[in-house]
């Protein structure tokens, strides 16, 4: 049985147990279901600790158990749904995301920066899409996705440096950028062009194009991304046809978000 110890951080006093609790939740999310022994191994915790945490989470309805595996329950959607409802960029952006998926027939997403991960806040799929790889709540490393790189392009340089110092440039496909200098050079280009590409860098057969949007003070607001499998769309489609359509929509979301404070 662990004691409920406390730590000091930039946020004031914090409780270690809560961090352990969320580490377990992250783990069962990442592995899409986990057993007590596997979680205990990965997180270097005792099986009893993991068991107590999961039992508590089941009791309050945030975790469910199937066989010997544990999964996050739908109750998390009540938190996520509420969190998203407050976001002006979601309220304003969703209609345009739906229009874009109609227009392109492909997967279109509104992506924001959440704890320096590229989080899919809203997604809509066009008629051509049967089984999209991404979903609402999907979280990608910033270096491995078009919207993530678009975000890096508009974070302060010292913030980018600290993210790259702390996190490995994990290789997901043979095209993932794992060289820091190469990544920094690419985000420079993205900043100039207002356009980011994912050349099969996160999934081996998916490419994407993304347009960053900024707030009225020049901070990263979010990105609008179109993605499609290589089997259906070629490079020219992403480079020549989609950017114009995407910029027409992202520009409207950007400007409307700035003016949202007038209508609140």
């Amino acid at each position: 049985m662990t004691s409920s110890s406390e730590s000091d951080s930039e946020y004031g006093r914090t409780i270690d147990t809560v961090e352990t609790n969320f580490a377990i939740l992250q783990e069962i999310k990442n592995t899409d279901g986990g057993t007590i022994s596997a979680i205990a191994d990965v997180l270097d915790l005792s099986q009893a600790t993991v068991h107590h945490h999961l039992a508590t989470l089941r009791k309050i309805g945030y975790v469910k158990k199937e066989g010997t595996s544990y999964y996050p329950s739908n109750r998390f959607l009540t938190l996520g749904g509420r969190a998203r409802k407050r976001e002006a960029v979601f309220q304003i952006g969703r209609d345009y995301i739906e229009q874009l998926s109609d227009e392109t027939d492909e997967t279109v997403r509104l992506v924001v920066n959440c704890n320096d991960y590229a989080l899919t806040l809203y997604q809509d799929t066009g008629d051509a899409v049967e089984q999209p790889r991404t979903y609402v709540g999907d979280e990608a490393d910033l270096h491995s996705s078009a919207s993530g790189k678009a975000c890096l392009a508009h974070l302060p340089p010292e913030k980018v440096a600290s993210i790259l110092d702390e996190r490995p440039l994990t290789q997901y496909t043979e095209n993932t950028i794992t060289d820091r200098e190469e990544l920094l050079q690419e985000i420079d280009e993205i900043r100039q062009k207002g356009l980011a590409f994912d050349d099969r860098e996160r999934f081996p057969n998916i490419w994407c194009v993304s347009v960053p949007m900024l707030t009225e003070t020049g901070d990263f607001l979010g990105a609008v991304t179109v993605s499609a499998p290589t089997s259906r769309r070629d490079r020219d489609w992403f480079h020549d046809e989609i950017p114009g359509i995407l910029k027409n929509a992202s520009g409207v979301i950007e400007v409307s978000s700035a003016y949202a404070q007038w209508t609140e």
Binding site: N248, G251, E254, V255
Partner: peptide, 10 residues
């Protein structure tokens, strides 16, 4: 002029 990176033209 409106400062924006977005290049809309539709």
């Amino acid at each position: 002029r409106f400062e924006t990176d977005a290049l809309m033209y539709d």
